[in-house]
């Protein structure tokens, strides 16, 4: 017989076709268009694309020397880090509690479901809600704080740099911890129960199981959470944009890079070119940081996994061969 095992590699390509086709049809043109207009001077109602007269990279230079954009990038980092750390910590703790079979919590299922609810409302509604709660000079929070004697005069929360930032950080945290928790729980539930049983047999306690079974085995999902949160966080737009009428008022306090980009491209004179250039800069920043996260979290396990897969394939082919041989003998 000439057949030497079957190569399944082609199915890798076949199963990827729908993704690739959909990407080519719907995303390739917009992406290339964006990439290209970054080098032009397109704005307003122009349709013709001309390379920027002041040089191919003029928009990029403009962006990198623009204080507001730079501040915007810094603000984005600040807002993201400040909400991500408490968010993932709480999500991890909750996920550990909710997946711990031994912990008899009343209404576990109810809590799991309810914590995701803030993510169901649109960002626009959330923004309206919080700005009503913190209205100045008369609003529920101001009324309460005065009643309790915390402050003497009403406080204009959205006219103060840090209170505005804190509110945005809190809202982001509140909207997303439930989401993160569900993602982590789904990762933990994906762990084979045999691993926990084995740990039980070895006499591991809850914390040990969490540290030595749960965490390592949810590493891939943790990586997913890190990367998507990084991307989402550095593109943070909705809440900072909606909560103070789109200007990051008091100016710059919550003007994230995306808010800046949006205001460039979609308001005023529609500077599509600078908006595109800023987007590309953000893309590079996100790409570099993601690569770092990948590098830090990619450990030998994955490399080992690859070896295992290879070995398994090999063993499988061997098996096939043997079967064939056996067949031959029998036949």
């Amino acid at each position: 017989m000439k057949r030497k095992g079957v190569s399944y590699a082609k199915y890798g390509y076949i199963f990827s076709i729908p993704f690739v086709v959909a990407f080519l049809l719907f995303q390739l043109y917009p992406i290339f268009y964006t990439l290209f207009i970054g080098f032009t001077n397109l704005k307003g109602f122009d349709t013709a694309l001309h390379i920027h007269p002041k040089g191919l990279f003029y928009n990029f230079k403009w962006a990198l020397t623009n204080d507001t954009f730079i501040t915007g990038v810094k603000t984005t980092f600040l807002l993201w880090i400040c909400n991500f750390i408490p968010q993932i910590s709480l999500a991890l703790i909750l996920a550990a509690w909710f997946t711990n079979e031994r912990m008899k919590l009343f209404g576990k299922g109810f809590f799991k479901v309810v914590f995701y609810l803030p993510n169901i409302i649109t960002a626009a509604s959330v923004a309206v809600l919080f700005s009503s709660l913190f209205y100045y000079p008369v609003g529920p929070v101001n009324d309460l704080l005065q009643k309790w004697g915390v402050i003497d005069a009403p406080m204009d929360f959205f006219n103060d740099k840090w209170s505005t930032r804190l509110l945005v950080i809190f809202i982001q945290f509140w909207m997303w911890y439930g989401y993160t928790m569900i993602v982590l729980i789904s990762g933990i539930l994906g762990i084979s129960p045999e691993l926990f049983e084995a740990a039980d047999i070895d006499g591991a306690n809850g914390l040990q199981k969490f540290l030595f079974v749960t965490i390592p085995n949810t590493k891939t999902i943790l990586l997913y959470t890190m990367i998507t949160s990084l991307i989402g966080g550095l593109q943070m737009f909705d809440i900072p944009y909606l909560i103070t009428n789109g200007h990051g008022e008091p100016r710059f306090a919550i003007q994230t890079a995306s808010v800046f980009i949006y205001n460039q491209g979609f308001t005023g004179e529609h500077n599509y070119a600078t908006a595109a250039a800023c987007s590309m800069i953000m893309f590079v920043i996100i790409g570099v940081l993601s690569a770092i996260v990948f590098y830090l979290m990619r450990d030998k396990d994955e490399a080992a996994l690859h070896k295992v897969i290879k070995a398994q394939e090999k063993a499988y082919r061997q098996k096939l061969k043997e079967q064939k041989k056996g067949g031959n003998i029998n036949g």
Partner: peptide
């Protein structure tokens, strides 16, 4: 693809 900022790409879309 996942890392491309969405807003500006919508112009082309």
């Amino acid at each position: 693809v996942m890392m491309i900022p969405a807003q500006v790409v919508t112009i082309g879309f």
